[in-house]
Amino acid sequence: MIIAGRAWRFGDDVNTDLILPGRYLELTDPEEMARHAMEGVLPSFSERVKPGDIIVAGRNFGCGSSREHAPLALKHAGVGAIVAESFARIFYRNCINIGLPALQCHRISSEVMDGDDLEIDLNRGTLKNLRTGVRLQFTPLPNFIVKIITEGGLTWYLRMHMEEWIDEEI
């Protein structure tokens, strides 16, 4: 799976209240959530982001509230992947579960500038910066996680594999 788009650079500790402020938790339609994606940091984000664009962030991305509204808003705004130095735990799970690639790459902040064009090869675990030509390796995802992402998220994955899930120990 290849993901290609423009990089949107953010800093450390971007929390879910910034990604989608609490006042929008009453929304239940992901398309509506998408209109407020990143509103707490960059209010114009949802208008400017294009399908496939990639969020590049520092440490602890997605800390705070467990609201799945936050990654849903990003996904439906068109974000193709999030690459960060590290992720907060619940947010990371939520991304995988809804089929939004969340990739950990320690050097990402120093190798990518806002606006760079990036290309991610999910299966090979690489990210290429088309401006500088630099190729980075991200922490590879376990196979079943890649499957969850490519099958559109955990719920769709389970539709196919429910029996294994219920009967088998991992």
């Binding site: 799945e68 619940i90 998220g153 991992i170």
Partner: peptide
């Protein structure tokens, strides 16, 4: 521990989580 809605959805369906 706290989980997102999809994780909880799977718990609701199966009583299990990874």
């Amino acid at each position: 521990t706290g989980l997102g809605s999809t994780d909880i959805g799977v718990v609701l369906a199966t009583g299990k989580t990874w």
